[in-house]
Amino acid sequence: MPTVTIDGIRVEVETGATVLDAARKAGIWIPTLCYHPAVSPPATCRLCMVELDRGDWKQLVTSCNYPVRCDIEVSVSSDRAVAARRGVMQLLLALAPENEQLKALAERMGVEGTPYPTVTTSQRDCILCGLCTAVCDEVLGRSAIAFSGRGPDRAVTTPFRQPAEDCIGCGACAVVCPVGTIRIRMHEQEGEIEISPFKTRAKMLTCEQCGARVTSVPVAEYALNRAQIDWQEFRQLARLCPRCRRKRTAARLTEGRTLAAQAGYVAGTKKAE
């Protein structure tokens, strides 16, 4: 296993692990925005840059997608690495100057505001990291959202900027959005989930037993298809909330045990015979 030396701390990682993995193992914090373990690193935010020692020269690399193949030495805290990350943060702040989450991260990195003119993009508050589109494509296989336009008009949008037919209202994009720009809005009255700012809506599934909201209807269907279990009971269970599902399973188990006991099949009894 190759050894990565980060700011003097030595850690061993699997071949092919990233510098970021190594840093996390070493307990060293590297700021990230577009990194998420669920998808292959888009490496678009450039915030995780570190300085890699190549012997006679040094190179800035993005730690989230730099694979470790042999023993290497990297520096997270070198002047150059710190300056590079701060520079990137200033650029990001110019893209989403009002964003609270971004501002908090900037503060943690010692960055105070941005010297650059703030950009007014067609989608406000978005740093265009592409994590949402990656999740929707790679994990869900829906590709309901994608980048559209280019240059200052580049934005994450649904096709034709209309509610997306391909969206199942799973909310994954909102969960991974590192700056909290994509949000889930619940419309209790209509029983609908809305993915904002895309204006896509989906009906919510309510638990047949207790009436609690479970997931969106298309997500439930999607999960059933993906599991590829066409089994009556499974379908019924899928229409319940997790609590009622557990209750029902527990009830079934006790019922089963009673039946089995009556037939003399309770665990232990049979073996003893």
Binding site: D137, R142, S143, A144, I145, A146, F147, S148, G149, R150, D153, T157, T158, P159, F160, A164, E165, D166
Partner: peptide, 11 residues
């Protein structure tokens, strides 16, 4: 996905 066609069309 339609989103890909839209991406190309707007790019």
């Amino acid at each position: 996905p339609v989103s890909r066609l839209y991406a190309v069309a707007t790019f």
